[in-house]
């Protein structure tokens, strides 16, 4: 494992923990898209089915278990525990526009036409766009809490770091997975606008707000 991959995983884990703590400590999921979190739960579930079929390392298994468990905990907090604070009126992105095309694409473009492989491919495609309901919510309300911005930055930079990891692996291990690379590029591009706002506003101590 190279440094980019490791930092990417740490950043991904930080994002998940930041979100869990934000909701738990404030007893509120205001400003958080339940739809994006639901999509991430689907992403982890469909990708990590290989927990039952394939052992890679203790690190790999424990991270997968933590990702899956925390995604379900987040969904539970939004749709059950702190349901009253969930701002469903602003969470109006139509997720079928993400799920249906990525599902179709995973049947058409995959490494292997087997159930587990198609589900893995679907999870890669879906992950690349799963943040859209959250970004849509931020653009709709025109603002995001600073802690939510930190969450989004950690989540966005994780896939960006994976891009460097893939360059590294291509160079030194002669390994590349085109499906993951293209989806990772799409995912990173979706965050570019947010990265700009994060650097120019949040890092300078201002709240993330969009011009009206």
């Amino acid at each position: 494992m190279n440094i980019f991959r490791f930092l990417g995983d740490i950043s991904h884990l930080s994002a998940i923990i930041i979100l869990l703590l934000k909701i738990w400590k404030s007893r509120s999921c205001a400003g958080i898209s339940g739809k994006s979190q639901l999509l991430f739960a689907i992403v982890f579930t469909t990708r990590y089915l290989d927990l039952f079929t394939n052992f890679i390392s203790f690190y790999n298994t424990s991270m997968k278990v933590v990702y899956v468990a925390s995604s379900y905990a987040t969904v539970w907090m939004i749709y059950s525990k702190f349901k009253a604070t969930y701002d469903g009126n602003h969470d109006t992105f139509r997720v079928e526009f993400l799920i249906v095309p990525t599902a179709i694409l995973s049947f058409l473009v995959n490494h292997d036409f087997t159930p587990l492989e198609i589900l893995w491919t679907f999870s890669i495609y879906l992950e690349s766009v799963a943040i859209l309901p959250q970004l849509f919510m931020v653009s709709k309300t025109g603002e995001a809490e600073t802690i939510t911005s930190h969450y989004l930055f950690a989540l966005g930079i994780y896939r960006t770091l994976y891009l460097f990891n893939w360059i590294w692996r291509y160079q030194f291990e002669e390994f590349f997975d085109l499906i993951a690379i293209v989806a990772g590029l799409v995912q990173t591009v979706l965050y570019c606008d947010f990265f700009y706002l994060y650097i120019t506003k949040v890092l300078k101590g201002k709240k993330l707000s969009l011009p009206a």
């Binding site: 290989d50 390994f175 590349f176």
Partner: peptide, 10 residues
Amino acid sequence: VVARSEHDEL
């Protein structure tokens, strides 16, 4: 170099 699908990443 060939594309592989080992899925050893997260």
